[in-house]
Amino acid sequence: MFECALIQGELFRKLIASVQDLVQDGNFMCDANGISLQGMDSSHVALVALALKKEGFVEYRCDRDVTLGINFANLAKMLKCMGAKDRLSIRAQDEGDSASFVFESEDSSRVSNFELKLMQIDQEQLGVPETQYKAVIRMPSSEFQRICKDLSAIGDTVSISVTKEAVKFSVGGDIGSGDMSLRQSESGDVDGDDSEKVMIELEEPVQQNFALRYLNNFTKATALSKTVTLSLGTDMPLVTEYKMDNLGSIRYYLAPKIDE
């Protein structure tokens, strides 16, 4: 028997919205420590990895490892029926062919029950090695979303270059070129909370090219976290990570475009 509950069901709806345009369906691997999901986009250029910890749930019980094969668009149709402040419970029998989703309003005046048919998905998992990155940038997630959206109107490939002073996003296209630089916030800044700052940890300067349409897809997770962390290495996938307090994180990996 697997069951878990979130006070803020809305968070789970945002999680599914963050992956459903990149990956059609996937396996939620549930074990005693939490839920993980991994999936690649159809062109195998991007990988999304979701890791939810049991500590982030108000209730969590997993007697035996359970794999829930889910079509995200179908799940999203059911989650759409959930109230913004509803509590979400998910339940599945060990060998069941469906999973139940229960939404309950705060005052329990409204309770909704949905049963989603599960799929058999044969999906190989990719091993993501622990990596020492050349540069790690933490910045406001809304700022990153805006940069990717606005620059993609000018070009389809963004060059991200990082020095210890700043991170620069550059594009070029038919109409011309442009770049946007974010300076590292002064560490002394006392005003504003940390989530508004741009922090750069630099091993050594690095520059890489990425397809903007994937980055724009990743920023669908902006609602999950006020900050986003970008990790870059030379000729390595970019890691775009949104951390959700004690619930866990969603990580997007994007293969670079390399000059042959």
Binding site: M40, G127, P129, Y253, K257
Partner: peptide
């Protein structure tokens, strides 16, 4: 010539 790599180029299947 700029080529777009696939993610499997970097990560191995388990």
């Amino acid at each position: 010539r700029i080529i777009q790599n696939e993610i499997e180029t970097f990560f191995q299947f388990k």
